[in-house]
Nucleic acid binder design. Structure first.
Lengths: 187, 187
DNA sequence: CCAGTAAGCTGAGGCTGCCTCCGGTTAATA
DNA sequence: TATTAACCGGAGGCAGCCTCAGCTTACTGG
């Protein structure tokens, strides 16, 4: 079906240089990094960047797909963890770390969850499904309130990740996520 | 001390036209709305906008200061509310509504909380202090866990507000805030 | 009422970034 | 080695940011 012709050698070279530089640029300047700068650093015309990645999202998506897959794999492992709620929390924390790598990435992924036409929506499909299974398992075990949805939890995670990015030190997200899971009321 | 000379009549007129248009523009397009567009709609050269508001933040701050004051006033009222934790939650919800009016505003205010040199930091000082008093009161009443700080709570509120803005319908923030306050564990 | 002047106004211009398009280049193929 | 489809490059049009030098005008005191 989708048996793509192999790329021409120069094309492949440029494609890979672009991905490298994009990774650096996004890590350093956030998801709004200048595309022209990326092309420049890759030693390639701006037109070439657009040929390979027609939109900024397409570029990001290519960089992120591997992570989504890894995150899905992690969920599969955690589905056999003896403590369902802990497993869920651990998984969410990992996801939070992943979305914290590029400044501004959380916004993108949060929006992607509500936009079925987005490329990112599609490419994190498997991951989301496995996340939902973790949620259901925690509910079935009576460890998680029944009225909360996987979608809401994912959003809460994104919120914690977002907030962590707006805190000076490291590990803010972990602390906030813990608070959310433990609750705020005095025991 | 700060007895400012009264503005020239034309200056005052322009200043007010600019604020009006800025309010519209930010409400419609979020905090990244085009400043040139604002100047254009106000029937004023771009230079005039920059004369009155040297930065985008200065413009925003002028628009927001009144809200901060109102929010501080609200906190003062709630300090006498019979249920301290409820009072705190109510106050936070109000604050969340306020930061939800302009798209992108939450990011700004969250950052301002960590940047003492920012104009916004200063201008929401009184409001923050009163918020802290609400937190202390809830702790003293034994309704709120002792180990959470006012700063963390404010950040959680911002997180919920942020997330609410990334949810399709209305009232997402309220729901998420409630979840955070009630906790996630099954009862 | 008028002239002098500080305060205020303007918008061209330099910069950066986005994205498109088409003439020129080159890797693959036979 | 000649052919050609695939690929590359970067000029150019657009929009937004911000500054600055030259012009205009509201106030003032006489």
């Amino acid at each position: 079906m989708t048996d793509v012709k192999p790329m021409r050698a120069d094309a492949r070279r440029n494609y890979e240089r672009l991905l490298e530089e994009a990774q650096h640029a996004f890590a350093e300047h956030g998801v709004e990094a200048s595309l022209e700068e990326i092309a420049r650093r890759a030693g390639v015309g701006i037109g070439t960047l657009y040929r390979h990645f027609p939109t900024r999202d397409a570029l990001l998506e290519t960089l992120l797909r591997a992570r989504f897959d890894a995150q899905a794999e992690r969920a599969r492992e955690l589905l056999t963890h003896p403590e369902p709620l802990n497993a869920l929390q651990t998984w969410l924390a990992g996801l939070g770390d992943a979305t914290g790598t590029f400044r501004g990435l959380v916004e993108l992924t949060a929006d992607a969850l509500n936009d079925e036409s987005s490329r990112l929506y599609e490419s994190c499909h498997a991951m989301r499904d496995l996340g939902s299974q973790l949620v259901e398992r925690a509910k079935d075990a009576g460890e998680l309130r029944e009225d909360v949805t996987a979608h809401e939890l994912l959003l809460l995670l994104h919120a914690a990740s977002w907030a962590g990015g707006h805190l000076p030190g490291e590990g803010g997200m972990q602390r906030l996520l813990a608070l959310v899971f433990e609750g705020l009321r005095a025991s």
